[in-house]
Amino acid sequence: MDTLQILLLSFVQGITEFLPISSSGHLILTPLLFGYELQSLAFDVAVHLGALGAVMLYFRRELVTMTLAVFGSLRTRSIADPNARLGWMIVIATLPLVVLGLPLKLVLEFLRDDPTLAAWVIAATSIGFGLLLWWGDARGKRTRDEFSIDWRDAVVIGLMQAIAIIPGTSRSGITITAGLLLGLTRKAASRFSFLLAIPTILMAGGIETLDLMKASEPIDWFSLSLGAALSFVFAYLAIHYFLKFIERVSMLPFVIYRVLLGILILVLLW
């Protein structure tokens, strides 16, 4: 991989991982658009881990507080502490991915092997789930914060996250949509989505890393390291500015982008 390709893909992953526009879809579309070969799975894992580092750094204080509260709740057998409750809701929301992740991962691998079919799927999911995001933003009451999430809410958000393995769906987009429909504010839905990304990316990255360790292909460690570092920077900036402005700008710009992207893909495929 040349440096420009690494920079481009790292930027795409870092920005799109936490915006509701689908990182996996953009990582498939970008090489098609610029005439590159589809990057290796190892590079995809590296840039995802870079994004993981960014979200962990950004929410470092919340993570320490929640972790201590969760362990404290095991001792007291109570989740009266809001931080303990939030931590356990993140655990519950991760469980559907544990159950459904493997079969849905096979779908992703199948689509990676057929870029044209993947493009059709990305077009459909970009438009369909983009319109669902618009509906959730318009119909949601936006009166609850992330500490009000109960186990039912967590299961719903977790189920929505599981189907985001399909390219174009957007993990952050579908979980934010679910949060909005459940009455969360835009910022609360986004914060829960970003916190939920931590165990999700960690688990997915761990599985992919094990697969890579079994493979015999040589690994370009320079490209992987540079991609992870750049993705870290871009993802951190994306999280910071998204949370800073989301209550004022609404989800409409992302909905418009998704619909236009889907239409453009359909036109190019036709």
Results as ranks from 00 to 15, higher is better:
N83Y: 13
G50Y: 00
V99H: 01
E62W: 07
Q13F: 02
T76Y: 08
P96Y: 04
D44C: 07
S78F: 06
L7R: 06
F43S: 11
V70N: 00
T65K: 03
G87Q: 09
G14N: 08
P96V: 12
V98S: 02
V55T: 13
S24I: 02
L41M: 14
V99I: 15
T94K: 01
S10N: 05
G53P: 03
A93L: 03
V91W: 01
I15S: 14
A51N: 09
A69V: 07
Y36G: 07
I92S: 00
Y36D: 14
I90P: 01
M56W: 09
F11Y: 10
A69E: 02
L63P: 06
R85C: 06
P31K: 09
L74D: 05
V98L: 14
T65F: 05
G25Y: 02
P82Q: 01
D81Q: 02
G50S: 04
F11I: 12
L86H: 00
F18N: 11
M56P: 07
P31H: 08
V47N: 03
D44T: 11
S10R: 04
V47C: 02
L63K: 01
P82K: 02
V45M: 13
V91H: 01
A42P: 05
L57G: 15
L57Q: 07
V91R: 01
L8F: 10
L41D: 08
H48F: 04
R75P: 10
R75D: 07
L7F: 14
P31R: 11
W88F: 11
V47T: 09
I6P: 05
G72L: 00
R77P: 12
T16I: 14
A69D: 03
E17N: 11
E17I: 11
G14L: 02
R77H: 14
Y58R: 13
T65D: 06
G53V: 05
M66Q: 00
L52N: 05
D81W: 06
R60D: 09
M89E: 01
I21C: 05
N83R: 12
E37C: 11
G50T: 04
L7D: 03
R77C: 09
A69M: 07
R85D: 04
E17R: 12
L27C: 08
R85Q: 13
T65V: 15
V64D: 00
S24K: 07
R85L: 13
Y36M: 12
G72P: 01
S23R: 08
L27W: 10
D2Y: 04
V55R: 10
S40F: 12
R61K: 14
F59C: 10
V70I: 13
T3H: 09
V70F: 03
I21R: 14
G53C: 13
A42C: 05
L19P: 08
W88Q: 00
A51G: 15
R75A: 13
L33F: 11
I6W: 04
G35M: 12
V12A: 08
A54K: 04
A46E: 07
L27D: 11
L97A: 15
L49N: 03
I90T: 01
F43A: 08
A51C: 10
Q5T: 14
Y36Q: 15
M89F: 03
G50F: 01
L95Y: 02
L7I: 15
S23K: 13
